[in-house]
């Protein structure tokens, strides 16, 4: 069986591309060995991260670049999937990125909560030259 491969892609910040990215994430997560339920949650986390880039990083401009890398990772006898998203939009202070209080039921603001709930490691960084880099890892067998 071939080892899962790293996938890199650049997509435009058009919501129509979300479906394409989700499919790529599902395929990679499946190859790494995630369950169907975990695979769906990983795809959801990536979807939410990209939606935040489109809405906030690029202020709903649909023709801006987003770089995505989907990479099988291994460390200390465990394996998982790394997902790296880099945009070139408005630089956001990583310290200000947080999910909202879920007790306040209202539309919007759920994306960061979903990302941090689903993924085991989440790190936002200001990227050189502007924009934001988001690194996420989901480990297998880690709930």
């Amino acid at each position: 069986m071939a080892l899962p491969k790293c996938v890199e892609m650049r997509v435009l910040s058009d919501p129509a591309n979300l479906r394409v990215v989700r499919e790529a994430v599902r395929r990679s997560a499946g190859e790494v060995g995630f369950s169907e339920a975990d695979t769906e949650q990983i795809a959801l986390a990536v979807d939410e991260a990209l939606a935040n880039v489109i809405k906030h990083g690029y202020d709903q401009q649909y023709d801006q670049p987003i770089d995505i890398r989907i990479e099988p990772v291994a460390e200390s006898g465990r394996s998982g999937l790394g997902l790296f998203i880099r945009d070139f939009g408005a630089t956001v202070d990583p310290e200000t990125i947080c999910g909202r209080d879920l007790a306040d039921v209202r539309p919007g603001g759920l994306g960061v909560h979903i990302i941090t709930s689903v993924m085991d490691e989440v790190r936002y960084e200001s990227a050189e030259g502007g924009g934001t880099r988001l690194s996420m890892v989901k480990w297998r067998g880690h709930e």
């Binding site: 989700r22 939410e48 939606a51 209202r106 539309p107 919007g108 759920l110 994306g111 979903i114």
Partner: peptide, 13 residues
């Protein structure tokens, strides 16, 4: 078959 937070927000609205 799939719903993200934008869909959930629509349901809340």
């Amino acid at each position: 078959s799939y719903m993200d937070s934008s869909g959930v927000s629509t349901l809340v609205e």
